[in-house]
Computed example of a mutant assay.
Amino acid sequence: MKIYWKKLDDEYVPNFIDKNTRKNIAADIEITNLSNGKTTLYEKIIKLTKVCRIVKGGRKYRYWALVVVGDMCGSVGFGVAKANEVQDAVIKSGRCAKNNMVKVPLGRNKELISNISGRYNSTKILMWNNRDGVGIRASNAVRSIFDALGIRNASAKIIGSRNPHNVIKATFAALKQLSIRFRLWKRCS
C-alpha cells in the first residue's frame, strides 16, 4: 500500500492507494436496513453540562446533554436536549437522536467508501480509512460516531474549533456528502 499526501482545501491529507484498486467502488458497498426498534442501539453521552439562568428569585439550574446513537450497521444520529434533571436530559436527547438518524453507506468491511471532509461554522473535519489493525485515530466525539456506525479502522483530523457540538455537526455534514456521492455512483453505474 502506497501513501501520498493530497492537498485538500489548503490542508494536506493522506490518500491511500492500494495495488489492487477497484474500478467500480459502488459494487463493493453494502447498505443494511435501519433496525425496526427490536435491536439494541449504541448510545454514548458526548457532553453533559449544567447551565444556569438568573431570575428574580435566584439561579435556576438545568442540564444540557449531547448524545450519539447508532445501530453499528451504518445508521447514526445525534440529539441535544435540556431538562431539569440529568436523567431526563439524557433520555430526551437520546429520543431526539433516534428520530434524526442518518443512513451512511459503508464498504464491505464496514469502512468509509472514500475520503470525506465536512465543515460547520469554524470547524472543519477530514476523515479517511486506515489499514486493518490500526483502529480509530480521532477525537472522542468523532470516535463515538465511528463506534455508532460500526467503523473499526479510520482516522480524522479536526481543523479549527474543537467544540464537541460543532465537531459532531461537521462530521454529520461530511457523512451526508458521502450519502450523496453514493447515490450519484449508483445512478451512473
Rank of each mutant, 00 (worst) to 15 (best):
A154G: 10
F172R: 05
G135R: 07
A89Y: 05
Y120N: 12
I159Y: 05
I125N: 04
K98I: 10
C73W: 00
T171R: 10
I158S: 05
L41S: 03
R59K: 15
A148N: 00
G107Q: 00
L178Y: 03
N121Q: 13
K7W: 02
R152D: 06
V134N: 03
V68T: 02
D18S: 13
G118K: 04
R152H: 05
K157N: 07
K157Y: 05
N15G: 02
I3Q: 06
S155N: 06
A141W: 01
N140E: 12
R22L: 08
L149R: 05
V51W: 03
K7I: 11
K19M: 07
K110W: 01
R131M: 04
E11A: 10
V167K: 02
N130E: 13
I113W: 03
A97V: 08
K110V: 02
R53V: 09
K103S: 13
V134H: 04
I159T: 11
S144V: 04
T21K: 09
P164T: 06
G118R: 05
A83R: 08
L126M: 07
A138G: 11
R95S: 11
S161P: 08
V51E: 14
A26K: 03
N84A: 10
I158W: 09
S155P: 00
P14D: 05
K38H: 03
D28S: 14
K19H: 07
A138N: 08
S93W: 01
G135S: 06
D88G: 15
S179K: 12
G79N: 10
R22Y: 11
Q87T: 15
K124T: 15
E85P: 00
V76L: 03
R131L: 10
I168N: 05
V142G: 04
G57E: 12
E11R: 14
E111I: 01
K19L: 07
V80I: 15
S93Q: 09
R53G: 02
L149K: 01
N129Y: 04
K157S: 09
K56L: 09
G133R: 10
A148C: 05
S155E: 00
V55L: 11
D88R: 12
K44P: 01
F78V: 02
K169E: 15
G37V: 03
D147A: 11
G37S: 03
G58S: 06
G79R: 07
T123E: 07
I45L: 13
R53T: 14
L8N: 09
P14N: 12
I54R: 13
Q177Y: 05
R162D: 08
K110T: 02
T123N: 12
A65T: 00
N115R: 10
N15M: 11
V104A: 06
E43G: 05
I145L: 09
F16I: 15
V13C: 04
N166R: 05
S161K: 09
L48G: 00
A81L: 04
E11K: 15
R95C: 06
I180E: 12
L178K: 00
E11Y: 13
G37F: 10
M127T: 09
D9S: 14
I46H: 08
N36P: 00
I113L: 14
V86S: 04
G107W: 01
V104W: 02
P105S: 07
N130V: 10
Y61F: 14
A154M: 06
A27F: 01
M101K: 11
N130C: 11
K2H: 12
